[in-house]
């Protein structure tokens, strides 16, 4: 009888541990950010900033003035330019933007277009003040349809 009880304890313990091991969330899902999803045109508010997707357009070539010189950038894919309205919520922050493509790949805003006034990587968001800004992504054309813009609090 006591042998049976011992066996039951061991089996029960093993089952419990296995269950804990299998249901334990992995590190990536434990430390991931809180995500707020909204449809285009609505204002999404997160803990550190709020934002609205205003408009988008594509271009094969982008020209801009950087530090006094005119720079032209071309691409194998397309440039996706997204207009955003952003504001801080509890304190001044900066925001990193990403485009989650149709294939769920994450495209960071391109560093090939930089130092342009009003571009999002230049912008300090202040609480209560909304700023119109834009961000530029470089991606294959088929990643645009079904994709989504996102922002990540930076500082």
């Amino acid at each position: 009888m006591s042998r049976l009880v011992n066996l039951a304890i061991v089996v029960g313990g093993a089952a419990l541990l296995a269950g804990m091991m299998l249901t334990n969330p992995d590190y990536n899902s434990v430390v991931r950010p809180f995500v707020t999803k909204v449809s285009a045109g609505d204002t999404g508010e997160t803990r550190m900033f709020a934002g609205r997707f205003e408009a988008w357009r594509t271009a094969d070539r982008v020209s801009f003035d950087s530090l006094g010189t005119s720079v032209t950038r071309d691409t194998e894919g397309v440039f996706l330019i997204v207009d955003l309205e952003l504001s801080g919520t509890i304190r001044s922050t900066m925001v990193d933007t990403i485009w989650e493509g149709a294939s769920k790949r994450r495209y960071a805003s391109t560093k090939r277009v930089a130092n342009v006034p009003r571009q999002v990587d230049q912008l300090w968001l202040q609480p209560g003040l909304s700023s119109t800004t834009f961000t530029v992504f470089e991606l294959p054309p088929d990643e645009i349809e079904g994709g989504a813009a996102g922002g990540d609090y930076e500082l």
Partner: peptide, 8 residues
């Protein structure tokens, strides 16, 4: 500076 996925 960066490499975008699917963009050789």
């Amino acid at each position: 500076l960066q490499l975008q996925p699917r963009m050789p």
